[in-house]
């Protein structure tokens, strides 16, 4: 179901009703991202939350998530490991992933790019930056088909 919607989103660029998974071990940051998404027109009811990579993977395997926004530094499974797990899973590998993190070394950014991240935002960030990166991700996905 989500895969079909993802295909449509690529063709139609950006669907404001897509199902978004926000992954962060801090409830405050999850709430901030949820608020900013709501401000950008993504209904709060379509945003789900996970507090680390392991619980995120369990939610992703239910097959309803279209887009993942994840922190890097989390207990259990980190954001970079979550990204690698998504890309290694045949059923999940096409889901776009936006990294929103305080981790900002060149090595980490390059590692995320090599692991297949679709966008990278450093904290703290604004709603404008979040919008720019989400728009850019789906523009690129639409361009590659």
């Amino acid at each position: 179901m989500a895969r079909g919607r993802l295909k449509n989103m690529r063709e139609e660029r950006l669907d404001k009703n897509m199902q978004i998974l926000v992954v962060d071990d801090f409830s405050t940051m999850r709430r901030i991202v949820r608020n900013l998404l709501d401000e950008l027109g993504f209904p709060a009811g379509n945003v789900r939350e996970a507090e680390d990579g392991n619980s995120a993977m369990a939610m992703l395997r239910q097959g309803t998530i279209d887009f993942v926004i994840t922190d890097w530094n989390m207990p259990g499974m980190t954001g970079i490991d979550l990204l690698r797990a998504i890309r290694a899973d045949a059923a999940l590998k096409s889901i776009p992933v936006l990294m929103v993190t305080a981790e900002n070394t060149r090595e980490q950014i390059i590692a995320a790019a090599q692991a297949g991240v679709n966008g990278y935002i450093v904290k703290p960030f604004t709603a404008v930056t979040l919008k720019e990166k989400i728009d850019r991700i789906f523009e690129r996905l639409a361009a590659v088909g």
Partner: peptide, 10 residues
């Protein structure tokens, strides 16, 4: 480790 501290640098 060399950090890219701003979003523009990233």
């Amino acid at each position: 480790a060399q950090a890219a501290s701003t979003q523009d640098e990233v």
